[in-house]
Structure formats: C-alpha cells, structure tokens
Design a protein around this nucleic acid. Structure first.
Lengths: 210, 210
DNA sequence: GTCTATAAGAGGATAGAC
DNA sequence: GTCTATCCTCTTATAGAC
C-alpha cells in the first residue's frame, strides 16, 4: 500500500487527528476518482484506519462529502472577504478579487474541484446549503462589477453575466495549470488579470476619470 | 463492435435503432448521475431493453463511455470546422468561433458536459485519444488568436493562455443557462461575445487598421 | 440480437468485542 | 474510538435458451 501525507505524530487530540486524516484522504480520493468512484475501503486504508472507524466520524458517505464541501466553501468565502476590500474604488476591488481568486484556485485546486464538480452527488437539502454559500461568493463579484458599471469605469452590460463569465474564465486555470510548466505562477496571473480586466473595463471610462 | 452512421427514426436496421436508444439513455444518465453513478440496470431500462442486451453493442461499460465521448468530440470538431473559416481576417474567424462555441454549448449541454467532466473515468489509452481530439479544438482557437496578435488586431500576450481563458469563459454558460430565464439566448450570446471580444481585442490595433 | 437467470465480487453500512 | 467479522444489496459481466 502506498502511504501519502504526513504520518501522525503525537497529538493532544487523537480524534481530531483521525478526522483530519479522513478529510485529507477523502479530498484526494474524490479529486482523483470522484465521489461515486471512491470506495470506503480505499478511503479508510488511505486514512490509515479500519473501514468501520469512518462511522465514528460520519454517519454516511454523503455526510463526509457535505462536510468537505461546506468546509472548503466556507474557507473560500472567509479568505475572499479578508483579501477583498468591501469598499473603495470598484477597479481596485475588482483587481483584488481577481488576484485572490486566481491564487486560491491555483493553490487549492483539489478543494475547488470537488466543490463544483461533486454538486450533483449532493442530496437536495445539502445541495441547497452549498448553493447558498456559492451564491454569496458570486454575489460579491457581481456587486463589484455592478458598481463599476454604474460609475462608468466598466462597460455597461449585464453584471450577472459578466460575473459568471469572469469566474469561469479564471477558474479554468485549474484544468491546465502545471507548476512545472514553462510559465511561472506570477506570469500566468498577469496574463489572466490582463484578460479579465480588458473584458470588463471601459478604456474610455478610465480615460475620462483621469 | 461500435457502429456509427445515420440513424433514421423508421430504421430498416433494428440494431442501429437499439444502439441509438442506448446512446440516448447513456447520455442522459451520465449527465444526471455521472459515469460511476450510472448503473447498467437503469441504463438498460431507460433504453427499453434487457440489461444483457447492452453487451451485444459494447463489451464493457467503459467502451460505452468512450463511444459517447468520441462521438461527440468528433461532432464538435466537424461542426466547428464547418462554421469557422480556416482563412480570412483573424477577427472575423474569432467572432465565428465564439458564436459557434456559444450556440453549440447552449444547445448540446449534455454532450459537452460528459465530454469534459468524465475524462477522469477514462482508462489511460482512451484518455489519450480524447485528449488529442480536444487539443485539436483548442488549437484551432489558439491559432486564430496567435494570428490576431501577430497582425496587431489583438493585444500581444500568451496565445495559449488566452485561448484557454476564452474557452473556459464561454463554456461556463452551460452551468447556469436556463432557456426559461429572463435573458434570451441571443441576448446572452451578445453579452458573452462582447466580453470575449474585449478580452483579446486591441482597440488601438482596430483603430490603426481603419 | 435479445431475453432470463446467475455468477463473482464490490458497494455501503452494522454488530459486538476490546 | 477503533478493530474484526459480517450482512445485504447492488454492481458488472457471462451462460445459455430462443
């Protein structure tokens, strides 16, 4: 068997330790095989525990999925709110959002992936919970863009469509980014930022504001 | 074992008829539940046949997935090449590509979805085949953008990053488009086209070309 | 080519010892 | 809280009749 990740050292709380290992293994295996494709036997072995030990932490497989997705959606939201000012010039806030989103998606590719690719495996009630978190995130960008359109720094249009477009554009980096590739992380972020900025900014509006 | 060709409703060939029903049911069920989540019992019942009849058309479940994905990747490529001129002004070809991609993704959401979300379920050899088809499609857009950058109608930059960005932006429409929503298909295409155009076009380059 | 019946095993989840 | 052993269902795939 192949072991991966840090092996447990002495911890003051062995229960939290086990939980952390289950989460780490679940994240990796769902990323690799998908939720439906991940067997609990494999999950347990990767977490270094017996299969039935899983049920000391989660009542069902679905509960594990919900835990992982909510955990990371909440972290995404919290991190975004720390990184993006809630007031100020729309262009500055837009650039802060774009930069945050890019770096977060590069660094936490697996978390992001399961948060949007495993939604169809969620039972309706859980799907609803996650969707609300997701909408808060989208809403934040949409409000920035809407304000930018109002003040004239961005071209007028449907703010909602623009927000979805930009999010999809930037998130796409997870599908091909390779840390060992020829382009550095900083270089790629620059390229994406340029594209995302040009997509919504009104050059005339910028010129007039000067 | 896999056959292809025109499928008539009143078919003189009942074998093709059954195959078409399997494909239709498979497309729908994989879209709904994912490849791993789709059981062959359900597939057979949705196709209106007995479960073991599937094995008269495919040797394995994997073979069905490969068939569906290759079928639709080939159709995507063929349709694109018909819709997008292979020569002419880069801006014209770019707009033709964007329009084709948007309409195709709205109209054939399920096909597109399985072609990019079930790649991880493909065995290595099959994954390779599909990836090559996919790259041909991406390559087509990349060449248009590279030429646009050369002629100056598009801002200079990494053509590959730009192509991936635009493809991701436009493909994102499948995640939220709703035919019953407040925005018409034409209106949404306009919005997306505006964003995708602004993202890469050099306003100065356009002005100078006049 | 399609059916009924079944094989062989993997799936999620549980019982009870420690 | 974790383990070993087990239950029962569902899975993919095959056998053989028609």
């Amino acid at each position: 068997m192949i072991e991966s990740g840090p092996q447990n050292t002495e911890s003051p709380d062995p229960r939290q330790d086990t939980l952390a290992q289950i989460r780490a293994a679940g994240l990796q295996l769902i990323y690799q095989h998908g939720y439906e494709g991940m067997g609990l036997r494999l999950l347990a072995s990767q977490a270094g525990i017996g299969q039935s030990t899983l049920y000391g932490h989660y009542a069902t497989k679905q509960e594990l999925l919900v835990d992982l997705i909510c955990l990371h959606m909440n972290e995404l939201l919290t991190s975004m709110r720390q990184a993006v000012p809630s007031s100020g010039a729309p262009l500055d806030r837009y650039l802060a959002f774009v930069h945050f989103h890019l770096v977060y998606h590069i660094r936490r590719r697996r978390e992001v992936f399961i948060c949007y690719s495993e939604l169809r495996s969620l039972e309706p009630e859980n799907y609803q919970r996650v969707t609300e978190l997701r909408q808060q995130y989208e809403q934040a960008l949409m409000e920035i863009i809407a304000e930018g359109m109002t003040t004239g720094v961005m071209r007028p249009g449907e703010a909602r469509v623009a927000a979805y477009s930009i999010l999809a554009m930037l998130s796409g980096i997870t599908t091909w980014y390779n840390a060992d590739g020829p382009l550095s992380e900083a270089r790629i972020c620059d390229e994406y930022t340029r594209l995302a900025t040009a997509a919504v900014i009104d050059p005339l509006g910028i010129a007039l504001a000067r």
